[in-house]
Design a protein around this nucleic acid. Structure first.
Lengths: 147, 147
DNA sequence: GTAATTTCGGATAAAAAAGTCCTATTTTAA
DNA sequence: TTAAAATAGGACTTTTTTATCCGAAATTAC
């Protein structure tokens, strides 16, 4: 069991953080991303295809092709990625899978888990890829012309 | 994907909460627990066997047999259960599965996730089955003679 | 134009998790 | 003593997740 996200989602986040850092080098091939992350090329390819369909990355076929972010790293939140790969269940489902747990008839753990879950949700929403680019100040929005 | 725990762990927690509430009725059979939780008897049986081996519940074979808590509900923390079924990885592993993430060389999300993870750990440690018995005040330790 | 390189997408394989089945053993009620 | 009821435990099946393979289509460098 992964901590909170599936392996696909973990790899997606890792790949996007890498792509954000190296976004000035033109499209990065699945091959290169796979090597950097030390995971199978075929697997990250599928994940990148999925991210392409949901307009988080843009793909380019052919020689010198690859993948690049579809918009500024400051405009891609971690929540965007999680939502695309794993969905939003983590932020709404009952912690112990109680079938009838809801705010009106909560399971025993509901009220303890809710605030933590809310904090986690907020963290994923407010954090974007741009926050992790080395040398870039947090929340700094670079001049569009330099990107 | 379950939220944070495996299905086994979710069922274990649900079963133990049920057993805590009905602990005065003598051993509860796997059959009865399965019916109450609306899950397969064979599956919860395996889980209860595992909990038996780790001394969280006590089993009794034969007619009128079944399972009961191995100690007072106030002495069984949620962490005891999670540790037995899923292990403690959730409380130590990197949120995005970064292979080399550790406090010295943390992944980009490390410092944001750590405090939340710590709160969650604390919640599971301090909360015990006794907290969920209807009609019983939180943290109330009943007279031993009445249990 | 051609060859090389890359993504696309369907099919398949392997591994892990979840769920089922069957028989042996234990225990107790009658 | 016997029959019924219950856990123990091994083997098996199904489903989901993770991972791999391969041919087709696209694009570019030359």
């Amino acid at each position: 069991m992964t901590v909170l996200f599936s392996k696909k989602c973990e790899y997606a986040l890792q790949a996007l953080l890498f792509m954000a850092e190296y976004r000035h080098e033109g499209p990065l091939s699945a091959e290169r991303i796979a090597t950097h992350l030390d995971i199978p090329k075929e697997f990250i390819s599928k994940i990148l295809q999925s991210l392409t369909k949901s307009n988080i990355v843009i793909s380019q076929r052919g020689k010198a092709g690859g993948f690049r972010l579809a918009r500024l790293p400051e405009k891609i939140s971690l929540m965007d990625v999680v939502e695309n790969i794993d969905g939003l269940g983590v932020f709404s489902d009952c912690l112990i899978g109680h079938p009838s747990c809801n705010p009106e008839a909560p399971c025993p753990l509901h009220h303890s888990w809710a605030p933590l879950r809310s904090q986690l949700k907020h963290l994923m929403e407010k954090t974007h890829l741009g926050n992790f680019i080395p040398g870039q100040t947090l929340n700094q929005l670079p001049d569009e012309t330099t990107v």
